[in-house]
Design a protein around this nucleic acid. Structure first.
Lengths: 171, 171
DNA sequence: GTATGACAACCTATCGATAGATAGATTCTA
DNA sequence: TAGAATCTATCTATCGATAGGTTGTCATAC
């Protein structure tokens, strides 16, 4: 079973990475957040790339799980809108993988791999099981709109901008 | 008149910031790119926040200029699509202000101000001079889609994903 | 013409802070 | 008592930034 400290390190890393990106936090930041020394963080995650790769993996697992749970009741697009908007409501955070995607050209390969996996899984989920060309195109468009709306509302400091930018995602 | 070195510093900073974000480059990186010492970069830009704020300002000027020049011939949406896609074609770069927007929660206020200005100007330009509520909503949606498509295509390593994600932006 | 002063540009050298990472000792717990 | 977890202490590299000296250029005074 995963230690409680491991989870708390990931929690702290997720919060910080969604605020400032991969280079926006340090092992010492995480250590302070959790209440240990930085050497202890290295005990749980030997390198930063291993930590963030695992972080992206956990984020993907949780996001897809939440999406799959919500879709039957809400429908795909409303569920997506709600899940993305929750980031904004929780301290104006970005989608972790949206942030990492923006920085992907400067990230370690294992992190890029996990980030790409998030997008691939999300796009597949939105496109649905049939996955013809038109469905995939629509899915790409929807994911782009959601990620971009988050980014835009965030810099404008205006959560209503997210709603406006995604107002057409209702089907 | 602005010195050639000042421009070359901004050129180097733009390329690096669009790859790795605000924390993804150093004064020494820029100095090496330009062929001077890092103290000389500080001579032109006293602090990093001053440098990146000016960089975002220059980016906005250039982008809006290019947009205004292209709209009469191409129409707003095709022009936007082409300009954003050019980022992707040029070494898989992000939109500078899209990158900074993602990181905005961890950036110095002057940088955030300039970044926000880019989005405000872009949204106003897309909404057009009338700017009723519906036009503004549509503009927000378009900008979000373009920024998100760039981010998505970038991490997927697939420029065609940008085209697919923005295929409906033709009016 | 040439000397002189002023200023911008660039340099060497270095500061204190912090980065990611490691070695090895200690403490806690099953 | 074995192993996981945490610690102290430290390493090397790099960060943004600064002090103060050198070089180059150009305008003006002679």
């Amino acid at each position: 079973m995963p230690s409680a400290t491991t989870d708390r390190i990931l929690d702290a890393a997720e919060r910080r990475a969604r605020k400032g990106g991969y280079n926006g936090f340090s092992f010492r930041d995480l250590a302070e957040d959790v209440g240990v020394k930085s050497a202890s963080v290295h005990h749980h995650f030997p390198t930063k790339e291993a930590l963030v790769a695992r972080l992206a993996e956990r984020y993907t697992e949780r996001f897809m799980e939440a999406l799959e749970a919500a879709v039957p009741k809400e429908g795909t697009l409303p569920a997506l809108r709600r899940l993305f908007r929750a980031s904004l409501e929780d301290d104006n955070q970005m989608c972790l993988c949206g942030m990492l995607a923006a920085e992907s050209a400067a990230l370690p390969p294992p992190v890029v791999t996990e980030t790409r996996r998030f997008f691939e899984r999300l796009i597949s989920a939105v496109a649905g099981p049939e996955a013809d060309t038109a469905a995939r195109q629509k899915a790409l468009s929807v994911v782009a709109q959601l990620e971009g709306a988050l980014l835009t509302a965030r810099v404008l400091g205006d959560a209503a901008a997210f709603d406006a930018a995604t107002a057409d995602l209702t089907a």
